[in-house]
């Protein structure tokens, strides 16, 4: 296959950046999207040009590190992560546009690499159960219904890639934040801090500069892990019931 790639190049956060066009020949349909870029990068290096920088690590769809905005969609045409996308999803002669996640809260560091530490700070605001190591009850002491455990697991599967933010026209982080709030609100272990957690995580989300949610559902549609927007509804319930009887005093 032979492809034309329009790739966003930007030296660093303060650089203005812009698209550069490359031709990729020798693309085989069995390559993953990132392997296609690996080959391009080796060619660029041999030609003495700076390789295209992009984030990736596990290449198995689970670490949440890869983050390319391909032809106007986070992670490209399929509902998977970029690393799980293969070139057989494209056709010979196609032009592919590759950009970084675009959001105020995710500044570009270089080329296609963005800074997502805002997500870490949202978790630091309350995405945990405040227990120390040791001194906890036996794991089977509190039975949890399978239905609840499964629902909690559905929410807990979030890989924190940020596709939801990239997909949203408001760059809202509601899906990400709500997944963690839901997981812990569903489980008995999360009950004690339920209210303060919802309040603090939502406050942090706002402080980071993520936008509001206008219920377009784009986040759910693009989430590679299928995290449902029912989590956002649950978060809103948690949040409103928390603010009317706040634990944050």
């Amino acid at each position: 296959m032979k492809l034309t790639l329009k790739i966003w190049r930007q030296k660093n956060t303060s650089d203005k950046g812009g698209f550069v066009t490359y031709v990729a020949d020798h693309v085989s349909k069995d390559m993953s999207f990132l392997e296609m870029l690996d080959v391009l990068n080796d060619q660029l290096t041999e030609r003495g040009e700076d390789p295209v920088h992009f984030d990736h690590d596990c290449r198995e769809g689970i670490c949440g590190m890869c983050s390319l905005y391909i032809n106007g969609k986070p992670h490209g045409p399929l509902q998977t992560t970029t690393c799980q996308l293969h070139m057989r999803s494209f056709s010979d002669g196609e032009t592919i546009t590759i950009e970084p996640w675009r959001a105020k809260a995710f500044p570009v560091l270089k080329d296609l690499v963005v800074n997502r530490s805002a997500f870490d700070r949202i978790i630091q605001a309350g995405g945990y159960v405040s227990i120390n190591t040791g001194g906890v009850p036996d794991a089977n002491e509190i039975p949890i219904s399978k239905t609840i455990a499964d629902l909690a697991m559905d929410a807990a599967q979030c890989i924190g890639c940020g596709a939801c933010v990239a997909a949203c026209k408001n760059a809202s982080a509601m899906l990400f934040t709500s997944a963690k709030i839901s997981q812990l609100a569903l489980l008995p272990q999360g009950q004690v801090e339920r209210k303060s957690r919802a309040e603090n995580m939502v406050a942090q989300m706002d402080e980071e500069g993520f936008g509001a949610c206008t219920n377009t559902g784009a986040c759910e549609a693009e989430c590679p892990k299928g995290i449902s927007i029912t989590n956002i509804a649950r978060m809103n319930r948690e949040y409103f019931s928390a603010v009317v009887s706040s634990d944050n005093m």
């Binding site: 945990y128 159960v129 227990i131 190591t133 040791g134 906890v136 009850p137 036996d138 794991a139 509190i142 455990a149 499964d150 909690a152 697991m153 807990a156 997981q183 812990l184 489980l187 272990q189 999360g190």
Partner: peptide
């Protein structure tokens, strides 16, 4: 025990 107390959904 520790993981369950943290909210790990086994």
């Amino acid at each position: 025990d520790q993981c369950v107390a943290q909210g790990v959904p086994f």
